[in-house]
Computed example of a mutant assay.
Amino acid sequence: MPHESLTAQLAPHLLLLATLRETRNVTRAAELLAVPQPTISRRLAALGEALGSPLTVPDGRGIRLTRAAELLAEAAERALGPVDAGARLAREEIEPGSGRVVLGFLHLLGRSLVPTLLRDYRAQAPAARFTLVQGSRQEMLDRLSSGELDLALLAPVPEDPALDTAVLDEQPILLSVPAGHRLAGHEGVGMAELADEEFVMLEPGYGLRRITDDLCAAAGFSPRIAFEGQESDTVRGLVAAGLGVALLPHFEPGAPAGVSEVPLLPPVGRTIGLAWRKGEPVSPAVRAFRDHVRARECSGRWEPS
């Protein structure tokens, strides 16, 4: 049989092949696909006849795919990703108000910024659905580039020709020190004055870590790292315990107990922005939420965490 004819017969059954590859059980596959088991068996027999070789062989209480079927199933799994994406676009073109947005963001931005954005957006689009993904800046960039995320709130805003971005605000970076530290209450401090301090840092891959490393290098020293963490709130807690100093965004509404914030001289800030893949079509739901975020910034109502 010409491969074009085989492709035409296989196309409606891509999900069946992918499901069997995962479950290795006809009964379980029938349950997942909501199709009677005899129907699954007939389809497998017909596909095997079209291919000229059986697709499955018994394996204990289940089955396993033949080598030829494994090759087809691998191709089916690769093909299903774009098909699922296309189905989502088509569905949301008809019902944009109930679409889903996969939004990535930094841990720090999840404290108040992201909840505020979602609350305000849901007020005008109550059926909108979100999948929220948190992580380091590098992790969010990787997942955005791979297509796992629709949008990402990042700081600093990436300079990547493969991404489109919208700068939303500039967020001041301050020195956080224990309340009893020699610099607590000072009106400002230069980075060179911190050469002998022990630092509490975020792990590599976080935007604040890169900013801290770059500022220390520009001041002519490598930071002495006492502790590394994955969340800014943990870093602040370590500072409050007297375990080091840290460069962190201004804490709203004011520095927490045990921490004093000191401005850097000259002032230092980082951009907060929204990023998405350049040139790719997006669903109406993603486009509507993206426009909502950008409109907030334009109206001067942005309130960074």
Rank of each mutant, 00 (worst) to 15 (best):
M1S: 08
P2G: 11
P2V: 11
H3L: 15
S5M: 12
S5G: 09
T7E: 15
T7D: 15
A8Q: 13
L10Y: 06
V26G: 07
T27Q: 14
A29T: 10
T39V: 13
L44V: 00
G48S: 02
S53C: 14
P58F: 00
I63C: 13
R64V: 05
E77W: 01
R78T: 03
R78M: 07
A90T: 05
E92H: 06
E92C: 01
P96Q: 11
G97K: 05
R100T: 03
L108I: 14
G110Q: 09
L118P: 01
D120C: 03
S136Q: 14
R137Q: 15
E139L: 09
D142W: 06
S145N: 07
S145R: 07
L151V: 01
L153V: 05
V157D: 04
D160L: 02
P161H: 05
P161N: 01
A162P: 02
L163G: 10
L163A: 09
D164L: 09
A166S: 11
E170K: 03
S176P: 01
P178W: 08
P178Q: 10
G180K: 08
G185W: 03
E187D: 12
E193P: 01
A195W: 00
E203T: 07
E203S: 11
Y206R: 04
G220S: 06
F221Y: 13
E228F: 10
G229R: 15
Q230N: 14
E231Q: 13
D233W: 09
G237T: 12
G237A: 14
L238R: 12
A241N: 10
H250L: 10
L265S: 14
R270H: 15
G273M: 00
L274C: 07
L274W: 05
K278T: 08
A285H: 02
A285G: 02
R290V: 01
H292I: 07
H292G: 04
A295M: 03
G300F: 00
R301G: 04
S305A: 04
